[in-house]
Nucleic acid binder design. Sequence first.
DNA 1: CTAAACTTTCAATAATTATTGAAAATTCAG
DNA 2: CTGAATTTTCAATAATTATTGAAAGTTTAG
Lengths: 168, 168
Amino acid sequence: MNIIEAKQKFIEHWGILATQWGINRTMAQVHALLLIAEKPLSTDDIMAELNISRGNTNMNVRELINWNLIRKAITQGDRKEYFAAEKDIWKVAMHIMEQRKRRELDPMVKLLDELSRVEGDKRNTEIKSFTDTVNNIKKFSVHADKVMSVMIKAEENWFLGSFLKVFK
Amino acid sequence: MNIIEAKQKFIEHWGILATQWGINRTMAQVHALLLIAEKPLSTDDIMAELNISRGNTNMNVRELINWNLIRKAITQGDRKEYFAAEKDIWKVAMHIMEQRKRRELDPMVKLLDELSRVEGDKRNTEIKSFTDTVNNIKKFSVHADKVMSVMIKAEENWFLGSFLKVFK
DNA sequence: CTAAACTTTCAATAATTATTGAAAATTCAG
DNA sequence: CTGAATTTTCAATAATTATTGAAAGTTTAG
């Protein structure tokens, strides 16, 4: 496989992986493109490389900035905006984890908390069974939330180092 | 909130969460329904509770069985099949992790491995830059893969116990 | 074996989600 | 300021994904 094919394949499969995780395919492809780009790319570069419209490019670039996965890169003597991806894969993973925690896990914990305070006699089998299930999920979620928080805060990638020893 | 509303809300939000993670909303709602059901439910029960068709119910139930999240429950003196969810939330999480690892992470590692063997001069900046990125992602993925394997194999939920000490 | 009970399949259709592209808004050099 | 360059918005449309429901397939009681 030559470098052109390899890059195309990388972008294509990064997009497929993303859709399986509920992320817009194009957003992931823009991300992939910038991950393997040697220098920051402009909107026009991205449009040309991925054959997508200006609107689509703009929306997905902004969304990637929201996710902290790419940044604007300033270039003097040029009014165009250029974009560069965070290349440290540990940081990439942590940024994704941080966003998903905030957007999905935190609201879910909040909901489970509400649901666990359902009205009615706690001795009622149906209510007991429901609150038990909800509380178990909540307990698990809160733990997962804590683990993620610590990982996100950690500056270094101890995942690839001493941390792994825990897993033999 | 009463128990009826609470159950509806649980099912609804489990479905929403799922779509954000690339999982069919109905599949997650069937799962949620069975998670909070006190006894195994039949296809007709599920159809009635969620207002969905027989075909849809059947497809999603089978898929949940593939994911190891629910099982057929045998009932004597009844030709209908009944379904019950795994209620241990740790096991639920591990089954999901196991499937996603197998379906998505493993193929991605395989692809990255291929891409890292791209043709061309390794001193060429473009090729060097590309293989470096790919190798970093691969290294991270392989580690994640190992961590998951250990977690999946672990019989008990040490996540909620001593393991958490690692995180302060 | 027969037929009723039940499960599965899948083409047609509906619902959802993503993309386009042109118009509006913004920015900034001169 | 002015207007050209650039970015953003969003209604219309396209593409994708999910759902229906009836027909086909399978199972089992009698």
